[in-house]
Amino acid sequence: MYPRLKKLKAIMELEIDTHYSFPLLETIVSLLVIMSFYYATKAGFFMYGEIPIEYPIPGQSLLDLLPKWIEMGASVLAGRVYDNMMVILAFFVPVLTALSFGRDMDAGAFKTLLSYPISRRQLFMSKELLVLATTCGISSVSVLVAIRTFEPGPVHMDIVLMGTAVLWIPAMIVSSITALIAIHSRSLSASLFGGIAVSVGRVLSPFLFKDMPDMLIAIMNPGYAINTYLSSIQSGEILYSIPVGMFIAFAIGVLLLIVSMVSFDRMEV
């Protein structure tokens, strides 16, 4: 197991030197950190603008509202930040995947890479892992730091799970599809534009098709589904459909990852 991990690490280092050369990686990471804090600042502040301001209030609704508001505060903040970050990642994930796979296809670098003592699966996994770690990994950590900054108190497991679902699952799907396009088209531009089209289409679908079923929204755009639940509707039906939709999206993501890995395995170099 250990030599395999060592090999994976070596491929990742090579990948960082070739596709994430200085200062590309640093710029992406810095942008994601700044954007997480920007959205958390906005979402963290807006909460008190929504509280009724004048006392006495008929029926003392503020007294009922305040403890509930505080209890839900971290989830609402996390939902808004994750949703916004997902839109940012909708651009970064296909671009980085297309650069990682498509550029090597265009330049014919796979011949050189596969002449090293590494398997195709290791090469595929290292490329995919780097894309996901650079985009979703960094975003997850910076969003958690931002939430801790603006919403003091324990970070509950549901927020971490929400982040995983909103950031990682869509990224896994988009990244696999972009890799598949690169493998079959053997072109950087086709994978770049194809990946961005899939990614943007996925984010915009709930806005374009207003009558879309809740479960389909949770599959296509989990951030939108969670925010709709947290901020307005909160009906039992929607709550039930969100985790089911996310589980289906996760299954689709894993399936696409396997399909693209098999395609990469069979690809002629």
Partner: peptide, 19 residues
């Protein structure tokens, strides 16, 4: 270099103006 640039990103983040 990565740590220094990341640190600068956190500096900018600490001054993001709140609405």
């Amino acid at each position: 270099k990565f740590l220094i640039i990341l640190g600068l990103a956190f500096l900018i983040a600490s001054y993001v103006p709140a609405p």
